[in-house]
Every structure is written in C-alpha cells, then in structure tokens.
Simulated scan of single mutants.
Amino acid sequence: MLYFVGLGLFDEKDVSVKGLEVIKNANKVYVEFYTSRLMGADKEKMEDMYGREIHVLDRPQVEQDPWWLEEAKEIDIAFLTGGDTMVSTTHVDIRLRAMEKGIETRLIHGSSIVSAICGLTGLQNYRFGKAATIPHPYTSTRGNTIISETPYDTILRNRQMGLHTAVFLDIDMNKGYMTVNQGIDLLLQVDEKRGENLIKGSIAVGIANAGSEKPIVKADFAENLKIYDFGSPLHIVAIPADLHFVEAESLVKLAGAPGSILEVEDKN
C-alpha cells in the first residue's frame, strides 16, 4: 500500500490525526521537500514528532526514477508532502505510476494554501479562476533575461471573467524561494512592457507563513507591495478581480488594505 500524506501548511504539528497514525504504522516513510516544504520544521523535528525515521527524496527520485515505488508492492509506504497531498501534478503522476504497477493507494489530505488564502483574506473561494505560477527569470542563449508572461496572461483572462487569481511563486534549488516582492516586480515589468495597467494601480495581496501563529497578510496597491517586508518564505500572491463589498471590507480589516477600496466598491 502507498499512502500519500499531506502534512499541512507550516510545521510538523499541522499533520492530521489520521495522517499521524499512517506515518507511525507505515513500514517506511519518505518525504519530498522540493514542491513545497514545512518552513516551521525540519527533518529532525518531524522525526521527533512522528517517532519515525524519514527518508528524503530528491527531485529525480520522485519525477524521473521513483525506484521506491517497488517497495509499496510488499510493504506499507508513507509518502509525505507539504500542504495537501494532491495539489501538485507531480504527486498525481506518482499515484498513476503506482496504480499501473498494481499498487493500492490511499490519500490522507492536509490543509492547503488554496483554502488558506480565502480564510486569511476574506476573498471567496468560488470566485477564484485558474491559478498561475511565476517562475524565476532565465537567461536565453543570446544572453537576454527572459520573464515569463504566462502568469500575466492568466491574471488577465481571470480578470476579464471577474475572477481572482492565486499566484504561486517559484521554488528553485539554485535561485531559492521567490518572494512576494520579486513576484510583484516581475508582473509590473510585464505591465510596463505591454503598456497596460493590469497590475499597477490594482489591489494585490501578499501572504507569508500561512499556518503559523503569526502569518503576514497584506493587501495594497501592487507597487506598494513591491517594497513591503513579508519576512521569511513561503510566500504567495493573490490578485483580486472586482471585489464584492464583503471582500473589500475583509481586505481592509484583515489585510490592512487602503480604505479607499471601500469607496470604489460602494460606487459599483
């Protein structure tokens, strides 16, 4: 049996009771930290809390050569991931590979940043469209710095349909964890390149350390968030479309948005 266990948002204590039971009873426990990780815990804290030795898998061992799947044919394996276990398409792929090998699978869900965004900001979950991810810029063969415009296009399409956008920020082994500041700056650069004002002058929301005792949640005009101190990662951004008056009030009271957005919503 292969168990997929979502560990939740921030530290080793976020795991569900059901998930903890699976971890304690499994014959072997694996974890991957590259799609997401618990910023309030490390491998040692997790092992102390769960009472088990945990084997860390790198990216190739998950995506390219998941040799450890063969073990699940004979014994119970717990595969741990940050957040909810099936948010990443990588984990869906692993489950499909296991099923092709005749391995039975079971999901133990964990709290997810997708729902946490709504709880922390007051933005309504049914009003979110397709999510986007901002990758780190890269250098082309000609030496030019390339900024992906795909997340910008996703925000544009969602905005046209009156939908909010959850914007995930890149995690790269070499370039590190992208911050709200970096993500907003990249969107503003695309804004300027296109001569549009999709991002500049619009309300954006930055969130840091969701699930911790003191998460940082700040809503402001995007250009102001570019210089706001969100502290340590993990970070995520939400770009709202037109706001319902309850959403606007929530952003003011829960995320410190400028009160002027209430006046705008009153006119709509």
Rank of each mutant, 00 (worst) to 15 (best):
L2H: 05
L7K: 09
D11I: 14
D14S: 14
S16L: 07
V17W: 03
L20Q: 09
K24R: 15
N25Y: 01
Y30G: 04
Y34D: 04
G40H: 04
G40M: 09
G40N: 06
K43E: 09
K43C: 06
E44P: 00
M46W: 05
E47W: 01
H55D: 11
P60R: 06
P60H: 02
E63G: 03
Q64K: 14
E70T: 02
K73Y: 04
I75Y: 03
V87N: 01
S88V: 14
T90H: 02
T90M: 05
V92I: 15
R95H: 04
R95Q: 12
M99N: 10
K101S: 04
G102S: 07
G102W: 07
G102D: 06
V114L: 13
S115L: 15
T121N: 05
T121C: 06
G129D: 08
A131V: 12
A132H: 10
I134R: 00
I134T: 11
T139C: 03
R142A: 11
G143V: 11
N144F: 14
T145W: 00
T150A: 13
P151S: 09
Y152Q: 05
I155R: 03
R159M: 11
M161A: 11
M161P: 00
G162M: 09
M173K: 14
K175P: 00
T179E: 01
V180G: 01
D185C: 02
K193I: 10
I199C: 08
S202G: 08
A204I: 12
I207R: 05
N209F: 00
S212M: 03
I216Y: 04
F221Y: 15
F221D: 01
A222N: 06
E223G: 07
Y228C: 04
F230C: 12
L234Y: 08
A238D: 05
P240V: 14
P240T: 13
H244I: 10
A248F: 03
E249G: 04
S250D: 15
S250R: 11
L251V: 02
V252A: 12
V252G: 09
G259E: 15
E263W: 05
V264E: 14
